[in-house]
Write a protein that binds this DNA or RNA. Structure first.
Length: 789
RNA sequence: GCCGAAGUGGCGGAAUUGGUAGACGCGCACGGUUGAGGGCCGUGUGGGGCAACCCGUGCCGGUUCGAGUCCGGCCUUCGGCACCA
């Protein structure tokens, strides 16, 4: 059992955060009462930008700031009554933790899974650092919403794309994950099947390779388009009279924020390089263009343009007056390349492409084409992913130093394992000046080359904090182990995590990275399993009305719509917050916090409290004992079933119903003291995961010696669930006409006889004949008067 | 545009397998307790109608003795992806 570890931010937790931890704690307590002993650790995802920003703004050291926040959060956890095993606590900003990040990095470097490369990257001007693709949302920085710009920098990457196929394939076995998360990850990985095709550039002696999902439309490729950033561009522009203008334009495109470049309605911009390629299918010379609609980091950064069969290429061709040629001709109408307005997609028959004439658009034709280009030798089957390698370099101080050094003589070298951890220096200057403060820390910068022993310069980039969180669950098992990242035997015993609980906002980022790193650790031979989390539960967000926007939005400090648990706990107790939070609505759904409705939970707890005082007054015997006992059993059955399904909201409803029944029996003195006490004890047990403080106190007051948490979860007796008498619904032609109270075990014919004897039935039948009688035992009788057709 | 989820009282939401729609709670109304307020307790509360009854789970149609639930088509909202070749 595991709840995602939090970032210890400087803000106090609000009730929206609480949902996560309260659910986790309720489940943990429930599991314990069921006799299981799950590990319930907690830790801190404690590296990250806010700490550094706080340092710049308030002159507090990130480390001290973080420590204070951790202490404050621990206090809040305690005030919620959450039980964590603090002996296993981990904090990612400690050298004891991050040295294993470095160790992991070195192993990945060794295996070629970590590498440095110059590439266009996302740069957040506000955070002054690069971002991974996953951290760019709608062209903006995931954290601060600033527009991300493109820069070309030399950066460290992890080869997650090598694992794309496994990350997709394993979904088959991940039955315990919500479908929506799997769909999101599938979209993100974005697998496309197609082919790579080689185009000769006769004037340059070069080959241009493109990726296409439609190699079957090659005969319609009338021009080529390269991303302006494509490495071949300078050669193609040699001798072009407009070269200077084009280079200026390329520079402009390069500096355009991603959000603008990818905007939907944007007019495509392009330039003719003047160079030409040979279409390998037709042998024709076709022009090579540059255009901003071709992205540098997908496929090969270049395409064959088939305007007749691709909307984007058609738009561009019409705009620039480029040739259009049809490969597939629709069967139902005659279209010509000149008049084509919409591309012909996924229908039609091939003409004028000799061996393929008459072939219909479809997977078979596509396969024939790929076979053909492979035989011809200028193309091959290829799968491409949207997923990019994971960029982990960050130009910031508060993160794990990347353990490499640069030596003028020997190049880029890993820090030897024996020298780990590469510790983050404490005495750095937080001036808010541009750049990473590590770059100005001479002592940190100076290193010795492990190869030649000469002077070397230390890497100043630190790792993305998602590296920290991609394997932390394994560290809980070996939190104090100085010898290794974690103990494989313990991992074999405890992992994968049976139940992982956390917010949907991590559907892609954290959960994708953690899956990737787990696979890597598997491949290193450290663990048997490939998937870290067998079952995943994503609780929904808590929302609230925001004065600022006038809308109901996710509860957050920036939106000014938070509700503090501190005052609530002060006034009505932690159990009230817990019960209300769990009662609010379906746990996996987004729910709105309604401050007024909190009192419902408070009243319920007060009723329980008062009932304890009334037990003494119950009579020695009572006529309603059997019924109370039945309701007790029903409650146990319902609560147990719904706990297993995480339907906490209906669990609370069941608890309230049992309390209402008990309250009524006590009020009216209809049940014996023994029956009331027994019911009350069961109620306390069933309620304990939700309201631990109140129930534990009342349990003790009831004279029980062992703690309620250590008591065993109540069982129910199947035979006691059924009521002696049931209400039978009487329908005539499917319409409700009467209700009858009959003995539960009454025979079918007895029930029908009772139905026929009912005056209401008689009245509604009005002499019509009953053609058919449907009896659902214990539920209803339906009399059908018309002949069924 | 593609993919996914969801639409039920004034509100949050219940409803095993197709079988009493609205559990539980909030709010509201009335009554009790109280000097008063609050709190607490009780009763009522989907809409229409004096009533018998009629109508009601986004809309239209279908299957069925019977549909919130199954099938077909639409509408709306939310989420993911989106110039990805």
């Amino acid at each position: 059992m595991l709840v995602m570890f939090p970032y210890p931010s400087g803000d106090r937790l609000h009730v929206g955060h609480g949902r996560n931890y309260i659910m986790g704690d309720a489940l943990y307590r429930y599991q314990r009462m069921r006799g299981r002993r799950p590990l319930n650790p907690m830790g801190w995802d404690s590296f990250g930008l806010p700490a550094e920003n706080a340092a710049i703004e308030r002159q507090v050291h990130p480390s001290d700031w973080t420590q204070n926040n951790i202490a404050a959060m621990k206090e809040q956890f305690a005030s919620w009554g959450i039980l964590y095993d603090w002996s296993r606590e981990v904090s990612s900003c400690t050298p004891q933790y991050y040295r294993w990040n470095q160790w992991l990095f070195l192993r990945m470097l060794e295996k070629g899974l970590a590498y440095k490369r110059e590439a266009p990257v996302n740069w957040c001007p506000k955070c002054q650092t690069v971002l991974a693709n996953e951290q760019v949302v709608e062209g903006r920085c995931e954290r601060c919403r600033t527009e991300v710009v493109q820069k070309t920098l030399s950066q460290w990457f992890l080869r997650i794309t090598d694992y794309a196929e496994r990350l997709l394939g394993n979904f088959e076995r991940l039955d315990g994950w919500p479908e929506r998360v799997k769909v999101m990850q599938r979209n993100w990985i974005g697998r496309s099947e197609g082919a790579e095709l080689d185009f000769e550039l006769p004037d340059h002696g070069e080959t241009l390779t493109v990726f296409t999902t439609r190699p079957d439309t090659i005969h319609g490729a009338t021009f080529m388009v390269l991303a302006p950033e494509h490495p071949l561009v300078p050669r193609l522009l040699e001798g072009n009279p407009a070269r200077e203008e084009i280079e200026g334009w390329i520079e402009k495109v390069r500096n355009t924020p991603r959000i603008q470049r990818e905007a939907e309605e944007r007019r495509k911009e392009g330039r003719d390089t003047g160079a030409a390629a040979l279409n390998p299918a037709t042998g024709e010379r076709i022009p090579i263009w540059l255009a901003d609609y071709v992205l540098p980091d997908y496929g090969t950064g270049s395409i064959m343009a088939v305007p007749a069969h691709d909307a984007r290429d058609l738009e561009f061709a019409r705009q620039e007056g480029l040739a259009v040629r049809l490969v597939y001709h629709p069967e139902d109408e005659e279209v010509t390349a000149e008049t084509l307005i919409e591309p012909v997609l996924h229908h039609g028959v091939i003409r004028d492409a000799p061996p393929f004439d008459g072939a219909k658009d479809g997977p078979e034709t596509l396969a024939r084409f790929i076979d053909w280009v492979e035989e011809e030798g200028w193309g091959r089957r290829k799968v491409t992913y949207r997923l990019r390698d994971w960029l982990i370099s960050r130009q910031r101080y508060w993160g794990t130093p990347i353990p490499v050094v640069y030596c003028d003589a020997c190049g880029i070298l890993p820090v030897p394992e024996s020298e780990l951890p590469v510790a983050l220096p404490y005495d750095v200057e937080f001036s808010g000046r541009r750049g990473n403060p590590l770059e100005r820390h001479e002592e940190f910068l100076q290193a010795t080359c492990p190869e030649c022993g000469g002077p070397a310069r230390r890497e100043t980039d630190t790792m993305d904090t998602f590296v920290d969180s991609s394997w932390y669950f394994l560290r809980y098992l070996s939190a104090r182990d100085e010898e290794r990242i974690f103990d494989s035997q313990l991992a074999a015993a405890w992992c994968p995590v049976d139940q992982y609980i956390g917010g949907i906002e991590h559907a892609i980022l954290h959960l994708l990275y953690a899956r990737f790193v787990t696979m890597v650790l598997h491949d290193f031979g450290l663990i048997e399993f490939e998937e870290p989390f067998s079952n995943l539960f994503n609780q929904g967000m808590i929302t609230a009305f925001s004065e600022e926007s006038g809308r109901i939005e996710k509860m957050s400090k920036s939106r000014g719509n938070t509700v503090s648990p501190d005052r609530l706990i002060d006034q009505m107790g932690a159990d009230t917050e817990r019960v209300y939070t769990l009662f609010l609505g379906p746990p996996e759904e987004e729910v709105e916090w309604n401050q007024e409705a909190v009192s419902g939970a408070y009243r319920f707890l007060n009723r329980v409290w008062r009932a304890a005082g009334k037990l003494e007054e119950a009579p020695p015997t009572g006529p309603a004992d059997d019924e109370l006992e039945r309701l007790r059993n029903v409650a146990v059955e319902r609560v147990t079933r719904d706990m297993e399904k995480f339907k906490f909201n209906t669990v609370v409803a069941a608890l309230m119903e049992l309390m209402n029944a008990l309250g009524k029996a006590l009020e009216e003195s209809t049940a014996s003291k023994l029956a009331c006490e027994q019911t009350f004890d069961t109620l306390l047990q069933l309620m304990h995961p939700f309201a631990p403080h109140l129930t534990e106190e009342l349990w003790e007051a009831r004279g029980h010696v062992e703690s309620l948490l250590d008591s065993s979860w109540p069982e129910y007796d199947e035979a006691k669930l059924a009521a002696a008498r049931v209400t039978i619904v009487v329908q005539i032609d499917g319409k409700l006409r009467d209700r009858l109270d009959v003995a539960a075990e009454a025979a079918e014919n007895e029930v029908v006889a009772a139905v026929m004897a009912s005056p209401k039935v008689d009245q509604h039948l009005a002499g019509r004949e009953v053609a058919k009688t449907i009896v659902v035992p214990g539920r209803l009788v339906n009399l059908v008067t018309r002949a069924s057709s």
